[in-house]
């Protein structure tokens, strides 16, 4: 194989993969702690796209501000959704919670898409580039945008990893997802942890949408593709498994890049979903689940 093509495909795969990882980690975090399969995750991505467009294209602000605004904006949206809708419903639902959360998040998905359609119309609102230009090393072309997306995505995942692993709030979130009743007896305000976790998951989706605006222009359905892929990531990585979601996200990105190049556009979905089916059959707890863990 030609080395330059190989490197090019790795970069392309990592760019897409880092987005899938960001989306998947958020979805996984939310599921792990609250047992919600958030079907509206793609719409949080979509809101992130619009915030980025508003900040960068309409106000003409530098793009890092747009990314920051998307992250903070979606954090707030996430906390409001959790406190205003999810939490009250969870208290009423009891054992029926999983089904109720399906209906709630699918409903949110429809509402957000149609609100966006009414407010912004169906026009695609994109930004041509975050940082213009490219460099060539030998036969390999590095588009600056790709490098920016890649490094910011890795920075975000790294910060999240540090937060979850080492800060006391992060530890309390993990404790709540592993045994919420015990966490509560130790003085941890569990409902606050739910709000924080949902907010962070939403913020990750928002950052993802903002970062990828050059590839996925803002439009009411912008989140439909990414959310499907993030479900793939979460299945491959194991529901609730953060490390698994990061690894699976990158794996899916790379698989797609190589499938498109060596087979044809369209084949990437065939390959990826075949892998998903194989994983569901042979290793249903996910590729990266600790030995013996069940789904």
């Amino acid at each position: 194989m030609d080395l330059s093509i190989f490197i090019q495909l790795i970069v392309l795969g990592l760019v897409r993969g880092s987005m899938y990882a960001l989306m998947g980690v958020g979805l996984s975090l939310i599921f792990g702690i609250m047992e919600i399969v958030n079907f509206a995750h793609g719409e949080l991505f979509m809101i992130g796209c619009y915030i980025m467009y508003f900040m960068a294209a309409m106000l003409g602000l530098p793009f890092p501000l747009g990314i920051l605004a998307s992250g903070v904006g979606l954090l707030i949206v996430g906390v409001i959704l959790e406190k205003g809708l999810i939490s009250p419903l969870r208290k009423k639902a009891g054992r029926e919670w999983l089904m109720d959360s399906f209906v709630l998040t699918i409903g949110l998905m429809v509402i957000f898409q149609n609100l966006a359609l009414i407010i912004f119309g169906s026009v695609q609102r994109g930004i041509p580039y975050l940082v213009a230009g490219q460099s060539t090393f030998g036969d390999v072309v590095f588009i600056y945008d790709h490098l920016v997306i890649l490094s910011l995505a890795f920075l975000t995942v790294g910060l999240l990893w540090y937060f979850i692993k080492y800060t006391s709030l992060g530890k309390a979130i993990r404790a709540t997802s592993q045994h919420s009743e015990a966490a509560q007896t130790l003085g941890i305000d569990v409902s606050r942890m739910y709000a924080v976790a949902f907010g962070i998951g939403a913020a990750l989706a928002g950052i993802s949408g903002a970062l990828l605006i050059t590839l996925f222009p803002a439009n009411p359905n912008a989140g439909m593709g990414p959310v499907l892929k993030s479900f793939v990531v979460v299945i491959l990585g194991g529901l609730g498994n953060i490390k698994g979601a990061i690894a699976a996200g990158i794996l899916v990105g790379l698989l797609e890049a190589f499938a498109v190049f060596y087979l044809a556009g369209g084949w990437q979905n065939v390959i990826v979903f075949s892998v998903v089916i194989a994983v569901l059959v042979f290793k249903p707890a996910g590729l990266f689940a600790p030995a013996g863990e069940r789904p």
């Binding site: 006391s168 309390a172 404790a175 592993q178 045994h179 009743e181 015990a182």
Partner: peptide, 14 residues
């Protein structure tokens, strides 16, 4: 009621 995926020390810290 331990937090099974966290270390003994993390459990105690919590």
């Amino acid at each position: 009621s331990v937090f099974p995926a966290m270390t003994v020390e993390e459990n105690l810290e919590l």
